[in-house]
Amino acid sequence: MTPLAVTRPRRTRRTMPGLTPTLGFTLFYLGLIVLIPLAGVFFKASGLGFAGLWKVITSERVLAALSLSFGAAAIAAVLNAVFGSVVAWVFVRYEFPGKRLFDAFIDLPFALPTAVAGIALTALYSENGWIGSVLAHAGIKIAYTPLGIIVAMTFIGLPFVVRTVEPVLREVERDLEEAAATLGARRWQTVLRVIAPAVFPSLVTGFALSFARAVGEYGSVIFIAGNFPMVSEIAPLLIIIKLEEFDYKGATAVAATMLVLSFLLLLTINLLQAWVRRRV
């Protein structure tokens, strides 16, 4: 998943064929599969009226769950951005035994059902697990705390950053680095001034996708979270709880809030990137 391109598309000199069918189908399919169904969420939530909607969204418990989901997802996405770039860098620039093997593992979080990931992570990070028991000696508890939520969210979002940064990093011309070095730049200056700007947009895309995916995650988080109201209760769980109470409107109100927040975030990032692309 590469970023929205580093270079600017060349000016169209001749009208390319096929705008109507392709854009038509794109909008039709998008509408049918994504927009109409999602509009249903807003329609159902609007049954509450504005005041009712506001009351649900601003209730203490919903706010706690939303800030937990968005906060933990942000931390997980930062972790993924930092380590994902390191992983991408190492994969592109260095040779070491087992590289291909690790490379093949990267996409695994997509393929492994989230429930299996949740069970496996809980088994590893609970007090009696391979990792949890070591950390328990240091007094760190991961499973059944908000830390556990971050671990699960990092897992499921991991492929996004690596797979967006990797191809772009591969494209960075080494000649430029050499040139920079010849002109007397130190290595860290080259990395900061030549490589970082080229990679940055893709890093942001990876961050955004990883963040967006983590915000809504349910299956894997639920096993490791602990699920305490106000402490480790994620927003999707609150949706389930509201459904369990047959409060469909309340459930869709929380869902709609999450949707709007994620949408605004993704839109900001996409606009920012288009702007950066135009300036470069």
Binding site: A123, S126, N128, G129, I222, N227, L237
Partner: peptide, 15 residues
Amino acid sequence: TGARGSTTTFVQRGL
């Protein structure tokens, strides 16, 4: 979230 989940936590995780 479910009764079987709790049983697993108690029995498999040893919590």
